[in-house]
Amino acid sequence: MPLFRHENRQQSEAARDLYAKYEIAYTVVDFIAAACFVVGSFLFFSDATQYAATWLFVIGSFCFAAKPTIRLVREIKLYRMGKYETLAERAEG
């Protein structure tokens, strides 16, 4: 059962819940990053607010870097959940 497979998300109720929670986190981070870049872009119009704009761009960049991390952690957890369920099935059988 490799990573990033749709079947991993559907293997159990716990897997579906985990997937949903991570998808919400991913979306929240996406909105934060977008907001930082939009606000930062407007702040660059004034010399007085360029320092704040730069920081918003840095924060937005970190948010965009966090997105693939969130997805990878989610997929590893889903993968491990499947492994544990397989072990339980073998132990019962």
Rank of each mutant, 00 (worst) to 15 (best):
S46P: 05
A91N: 02
F57C: 12
A91P: 00
E23G: 06
I24D: 01
Y84Q: 15
F44P: 00
A25I: 12
A88T: 14
R90Y: 15
A33T: 03
Y22T: 12
F57A: 14
V58R: 15
M81C: 07
Y22D: 04
M1P: 01
V29D: 02
I76G: 01
A53E: 00
P2M: 03
R16V: 11
T49W: 01
A25V: 13
K21N: 10
F31N: 06
L43C: 03
E13Q: 09
V28C: 06
N8H: 05
P68T: 00
S12N: 01
R5K: 14
Y26N: 08
A35I: 09
R5S: 09
D17I: 11
Y19V: 06
E92W: 04
I24T: 10
G40N: 01
R71H: 15
L3N: 01
A65C: 02
F42R: 06
P68M: 01
L78F: 03
Q11Y: 00
E85Y: 06
R71Y: 06
F45A: 05
A15E: 00
W55N: 15
M81Q: 13
F44M: 11
R9S: 13
N8K: 02
M1H: 05
V29F: 11
A14N: 04
W55H: 13
F31Q: 02
Y84A: 14
D30L: 09
I59A: 08
P2F: 11
L56A: 09
V39L: 08
E89D: 06
F62W: 07
F57K: 05
F62T: 04
Y19G: 07
E85S: 14
A20H: 12
S12E: 04
Y84F: 09
A88D: 06
M81H: 02
G93M: 05
E13T: 11
L18R: 13
A53M: 02
G60W: 01
